[in-house]
Computed example of a mutant assay.
Amino acid sequence: MNRDTVPAATVGMPTTVGRPVARAAVPADAGGIIALRSELILSEPLDAEWAALCSTRLARRLAPGGDARAYVAEAPDGTLVSCALGLIHPVLPAPAYPRGLAARVHAVATQPEFRRCGLAREVLSALLDRLQADGATLFELHASKEATPLDRELGFAADPALMRMTRLEGVDRRIEAPSGRVLLPPEDYASSVPKSTGSAFVFFTNEHNRPVQLRATYSQAHPWQFPGGTMDHGERPWQTAQRECREETGLAVEGPPCLLASVFGLPGGDWPFSTTGCVFDGGRLTDDQIRSIVLDPDEHDAVRVLPLEEWKPLMPPQDFARLKAVMTARLTGTAAYFDSWDWGNS
């Protein structure tokens, strides 16, 4: 907590600027948080070397998968004027902390000219809510005299049994390069990483190497598609491709699987997930097999076979680029990597 207190009669929000905006901290805020802690909390401010080391380590711990959580308040000029920093650490599970996670509030600091306007309460309350949402149920902090009323109001209580000791004898106090990232429990790490859906498709041509595609009833933006779709729970890509092809065309592809392309798309528009897909070679269909295709009217209403270049005016550029990459892979025998099938693009 802040080590110095400015009398209430002499402080207040500057009248020439707006109220600072509170938000969740990101790794780029590490330097500002360390500067506030060094200036306002520590009995001896950090020198440049220690400040740089702390900033580097905190930035890594604020990144996805790290064990640090923080909220900051930012002045209109971008300067951090208030912060609340917490560190999650594992403990043995118990009824009071069933997930075995505790949290230590490591720093709460506000620049003197921005005190008495509720910033400390705002960032600390947001931090405690975030720590609780991440599974921590045991909280501790070192409270300064001036911060004790706020801490008690937020639920902290003094613990007469708490003792503290620092042992530096025999410890190498040289500054070392950061070691590895502190790991969170698997479920917490999983919630922090980007999400992606999986899909799989089957690519057919006729006997003259002309691509076969289906016209989708569900998408005007991407009208012509390969048979295929999104993976179900527990499916592997080849199983998805076989199932979707059978459901959409009535054709059974037996394998063995031959991968023609991997396709990746970033999220965009109204779709919040990236997409990772596999396109498998379904081989060359005879005219009789093409005529035997039975479409699901809820998904497709036409089958078309055209030379590659005649598909170009019928499709968005990214769809034709994907089709061309898959066709090239078929002809050359080298699998394609296509990573620009992004959502929201045409």
Rank of each mutant, 00 (worst) to 15 (best):
L101K: 04
T249C: 08
G269H: 11
L150W: 04
M327D: 12
V123M: 11
M1W: 04
T137V: 05
A216I: 01
V202I: 08
P20R: 02
G250Y: 05
R322D: 05
A200S: 13
M13P: 11
R104I: 13
G250I: 02
H208S: 12
S292I: 07
D172T: 10
S43K: 05
A158S: 04
L128D: 03
P90T: 04
P64G: 06
A9P: 05
R99S: 14
R173N: 14
L92Y: 03
A177V: 06
A35P: 02
Q220W: 00
I175K: 15
D296I: 03
Q132T: 00
K312T: 12
V182H: 02
P297F: 12
D151W: 08
P194M: 10
V21R: 15
G18S: 15
S191G: 06
F320R: 08
V21H: 14
A241P: 02
L119G: 00
A109W: 07
S346I: 09
R304L: 09
L138Q: 07
Q225C: 12
V108T: 11
E146R: 01
R104T: 13
G250K: 00
L85G: 03
L260S: 08
A63K: 07
D67G: 00
L58T: 11
L53I: 00
A136C: 07
D47Y: 03
